[in-house]
Design a protein around this nucleic acid. Sequence first.
RNA 1: GGGCCGCUAGCUCAAUGGCAGAGCUGCGGACUUUUAAUCCGUAGGUUCAGGGUUCGAGUCCCUGGCGGCCCA
Length: 513
Amino acid sequence: MTTNDPSIEGKPVTDQPVHIDADDDLPEQMRVRREKRARLLETGREPYPVGFPRTATLAEIRERFGDLPTDTATGEKVGVTGRVIFIRNTGKLAFATLRAGDGTELQAMLSLDRVGQEALDDWKRLVDLGDHVGIEGEVITSRRGELSVLADRWEMTAKSLRPLPVAHKPMSEESRVRQRYVDLIVRPQARETVRTRATVVRSLRESLHNRDYLEVETPMLQLLHGGAAARPFVTRSNALDTDLYLRIAPELFLKRCVVGGIERVFEINRNFRNEGVDSSHSPEFAMLEAYQAYADYNTMATMTRELVQEAAFRLSGSHVVRHHDGTEFDLGGEWREVTLYGSLSEALGEEVTVETPMPRLMEFAAKHDVPIDPKWGPGKLAEELFEALVVPGLIAPTFVRDYPEETSPLTRAHREVPGLTEKWDLYVLGFELATAYSELVDPVVQRDRLVAQSLLAAKGDPDAMQLDEDFLRAMEYGMPPAGGMGMGIDRLLMALTGLGIRETILFPIARPE
RNA sequence: GGGCCGCUAGCUCAAUGGCAGAGCUGCGGACUUUUAAUCCGUAGGUUCAGGGUUCGAGUCCCUGGCGGCCCA
């Protein structure tokens, strides 16, 4: 709490949030619910009590009494809680469906002869859809066989002041994203996605721990902009009197860890990129990065496949996952491997290599209506052609290997083909899921590459990295040969569920209302 | 960045340029076995904002806001 902030006290009264008696302006349904809250208080009851003597969860009751025959009384007294999601009142008998946070539903029944006239009338008068209630009573089944708690007593445990959306019509996508809490209340799929994500992240951590990796947390606020090619967010430190960058990647710090002897290291955390927002891009996104000494990009490919397959197995018990639309997606077995230039040559119907000169590549670009930027070199243009012509067809998991040196300044040169690097991108469902390198560890070559990057930055390329002298100093102490891999967590969820990125992120960024 | 579509009651959606409506929700009533309960009655609106055309604009035009889809 910050209510002691002295700066508030000196302000004129007009700047204070004015407490208006707004009830007259509220929509009828919200006014009515506030009146019901007030009526509870007036009659000495708490609309928001400190708790309720719950003796069993709804799931436990379903578990224990799931096979109870129709129209049976057990004599078993329980206390249960839940949110009211359906109400069916008759004259002297009321039914309500309660739902718990895990999605389990159970019926509550209130009969005149058990609770008395006053409690039954209050129930009908004061309880709305969406309220949290507690019920004490006997576990029974109704004449229609529905497992129920027949109340001796009921209590409001949290009055809902806003009406729930209609349960039988889907909310608009915008409402779902802007009011995820409501989405979670009414849509089982929304709750399921949260659980799926937690399962996947836990699976990744356990898979890495099982391989003797250590998890670390490296700076999110960075003095220099580096580790990838992307536009950063800039913020300000008052204490240091300097600009700071929200990190675009943890790479340069995880490599410092490897220099320091943490030979298997990973981080799962957020990166921030000041770029476009669409169905597969979010300005903040969760990422796994992992580095392993004495590994290379082949090692990392095998491990990446295993991490994804183990996550799939945790979700579905096999390497075949079921997408939200019901289609099955097979992530099992070995995955296809192609090379960047090989797959591009196939798409163009003509051989191109890292040697293919710029004018020839520009002809291909013109022929296939791929727009070009005069600042690009032949490597960048080849990658753009690849993204336009090959990527959309990469549905089954595919490793695309051996990228041009020009676009991969932190990657080791290919051990056989000059001009290429030992880098792969993993594509699935037409988007990039992960990337890995045989890391560049020669500090002299690294310095040359980073100086070239910083010259680009100085010339105004907002994506280009700044020269990180401290990183180079670390590299000069000697980093062992290593493989490094990065995987988008949100995109892994997309691959496993078939959902859009705004569904896999619990609270995606939205413009102000 | 370009194009297209949308924004109307708490929610989901209707409404040839001519009285702003439906279903669910809400409110009042009936009902002791309901399952999106049913039946009777009833309330609920700054039609995203601003401007324009018109006797008359939710509807047509312009500007802006927000969202979605497609393209680059």
